[in-house]
Amino acid sequence: MNAISQDVTAMTDSSAATAESRAAKFMKRRNRIRFYEILVWIAAIAAIFVAPTKLLILTEIAILALFAVSLDLVLGFAGIVSLGHAAFFGLGAYIAGLMALHFIAEPVVGLIAAGLVSGVLGFLTSFLILRGSDLTRLMTTLGIALMMAEVANQMAWLTGGADGLGGFTVGPILGTFEFDLFGRNGYIYCLVVLFLVTMIARRLAFSPFGLSLKAIKGNPMRAGMVGVPARRRIVAVYSLAAVFAGMAGALLTQTTSFVSPDVLAFHRSADLLMVLVIGGTGYLYGGIFGAIIFTLLKDWLSVVTPQYWMFWIGLILVAMVLTGRDRLARWIEFLPDRFSRKEAGR
């Protein structure tokens, strides 16, 4: 009787059929593997042979990249600004250290344990960030990280306090691959973990779950109105991100055989935001590119001005925000008037 209530039989006319095949193509194109993705992994593997003396800094990059991919799930997908992601990184680092010290020297077990414990903390604290504005979320996440740092500092009998936790040796990976002096196996280990986590995050990004996260970020009110249970999704992604952040912390412990309270420091959370902003949020590889640029930059600065590199990092942050804003503003000029106002008001 009318166009929309017509059932499937009447619908399979030519235009609908074309639409369906085009839609299928669009959807497949969404998650095709991009050229740069292959390039990243080839370069990462090639580095083992090309730059065998730089493996320590490459390991550092891989760990930071993993940490950044974790935050990207929270920030780039769900749109939650966190100033305390180091809480999970630090907890993972300490768990891995304590595992190696008291229970088992094999690192993969420690890695999984660290991820699980951090994930539990992420799950428990995720309920604190469900409500409120950006500002309350910032403060809550910051507060949690500061509390963790305070706990680590005060429970010296367990964590070594300000002196840090050391005196443990990390055993061979899977009982076979020793951590060597050049950091070769350590790098490969970190790279494998980074690769696996990135692939998991990638699947997530193109799943209905990932789409719903971006919907929550883009327009939380409408997301509710198409049936997205936002709270549950945020709890899930925040917990998962905490698992990955904890694993990143564990990798740091295991490759350096030491944990200092620095793993929970504020600057770690702030640096991480900077990494993501350099690389771009919401497409996972931003974390990896950002980690590469940030680590090389920091390394170079700390050679040029050993004591004052922080100044230049700060300057870059400020410059980035100010120019980024301009770029965004030019962007908006291309949109119809109605939308530019809406974007600016956000």
């Binding site: 870059i316 942050l317 980035m320």
Partner: peptide, 24 residues
């Protein structure tokens, strides 16, 4: 310039200022 920017931008910007002031 940043009154209308996102909160994330404001946070990054002011953290940058903090870093610079600490080093200076």
């Amino acid at each position: 310039w940043l009154y209308q920017a996102s909160h994330l931008d404001q946070v990054l910007f002011s953290v940058g200022i903090v870093f610079m002031s600490v080093a200076a």
